[in-house]
Each structure stands twice: as structure tokens, then as C-alpha cells.
Amino acid sequence: MNGKLVAGFIVIVGAVAGVAMYYLQEYAYYTKAVFKPGAEIALTLITSGQPEPILAEGIEGIDADSSPLRFRACFHTPMTQAMLSETYQAYQGAVPLIAPSWFDCFDAAKIGAALENGEALAFLSQSNIAPSVDRVVAVFPDGRAYAWHQIHPGAEVQ
């Protein structure tokens, strides 16, 4: 009888810990991202190397204080890929990070596939938004665009 109680206790503690871990990863730390009106999303100019706000509509985003890598945003831009390519710095090695399941406008797998096959283009939004972390923006031909933070390609993280 004692063994059943101990085993039951272990199973219950494990189940509670699993539910708590899931909640902490998916919901606990995320908040709505705050954007400056008129300067919601910026891209880095080729000529000056400085970020400049771009036209962005219908922006929604999430962020967290617990990690600089938790930022994600979805929006639409009327700017064409050709115009963006001539004006702003391309970003090599862009790999979107998976968003929480409830933030359904951001599909990292589809964005990543579009970047690999050349349908979407990646641009540097802002370098070193946090130490060794860049903000990256991917833009599709129809104006759909997505932003996320990622570690510099080749950066050493401590």
C-alpha cells in the first residue's frame, strides 16, 4: 500500500510539473509588443547603416522580458520587394524561430521555407537590438511581412 501512495504521488507531481512547464513556455512571459506610432518597424539602410522606419500596417506582435529572442511580429507593407532590396540591407542566414501556438499569424516553418526557396526576402531591421541579437524582417511579394529576433549568424553566445 505504501508503494502505491509513493508512486501515485510521483505521478501527480510529474503531471503538475509538466503542465506548469507547458504554461511557462507558451503563455507566462509573453505580452503584447509595444511599438512607437509611425516607427513600428524599421529596416537598416544600405547607404548609412542606420535603421529607418518603413510603412507597416496591421501590425501585431508579442515580446517578453525573459529573453530577447521571444519577439515576433506580423504586419503588411505596401513596399515592394524590389524597392526594399535596393534600399535596405539584406540579411544572410535568416532563420525564423517558432512562435507560441496561440500566436497563429506567425508560422516559422512557412516563413523559413519561403526564405529558402527565394519567395520571401530577409532584411536587417536592427543590429544588436540586444547583445549578439538582431531583429530580422522577412517580406513576401504580396506585402505580408514578419519580424523576429535571432542570434547573429556565427556569434558566440555565453
Score class of each variant (00 low, 15 high):
L84T: 09
T87S: 12
Y91P: 07
Q92G: 14
R70A: 10
H76D: 15
S125M: 00
S101T: 11
Y91M: 07
E40I: 01
A94Y: 07
G49E: 06
A130T: 03
Q92F: 13
S125T: 02
Y88D: 04
A39M: 01
A42D: 06
A120G: 07
K110F: 06
S67V: 11
A56E: 11
S101I: 13
P68T: 08
Q92R: 15
S127A: 14
D65C: 10
E116S: 13
A99E: 10
F123V: 01
E116T: 11
G58T: 07
D65I: 13
P131N: 07
I41P: 02
Y88S: 05
F71L: 13
N117L: 05
T44P: 00
G49L: 07
M83T: 13
Q50V: 10
E40S: 08
P131T: 09
F103E: 05
A130D: 07
C74W: 11
S101K: 14
G112Q: 01
I59C: 10
Q89T: 08
D107I: 13
K110A: 14
M79N: 12
I111C: 00
D107K: 09
P96N: 01
T80L: 09
H76N: 15
P53Q: 00
I111A: 00
L69I: 08
G112K: 04
E116W: 02
M79K: 09
A39P: 02
A122F: 03
Q92L: 14
I46F: 05
G93L: 08
L121K: 15
Y91L: 05
E57D: 13
N128Q: 14
P51M: 02
A120F: 12
S101F: 15
P68Q: 08
T80W: 10
A64D: 12
I54N: 11
A64I: 10
T87Q: 13
G61T: 13
Y88L: 06
A42M: 11
L115Q: 02
N128C: 05
L97Y: 00
L97K: 03
A109K: 02
A109L: 04
L115A: 04
A82T: 15
F123S: 00
F123A: 04
E116Q: 11
L124W: 06
M83I: 12
L121Q: 10
A94S: 08
M79R: 12
E40P: 01
A90R: 15
L69C: 11
E57Q: 14
Y91S: 08
N117T: 07
D107H: 11
W102C: 00
I111R: 01
R72D: 05
S67C: 11
C105P: 07
Q92A: 15
L45M: 14
C74Q: 09
P96M: 03
Y91N: 07
M83L: 14
G38E: 03
P78G: 05
Q89N: 09
Q126K: 14
S127N: 11
R70G: 06
F123G: 02
V133Q: 07
L43S: 07
F75K: 08
I129W: 03
G38T: 04
F106V: 02
T80Q: 10
P68K: 06
I54M: 12
T80N: 10
Y91D: 09
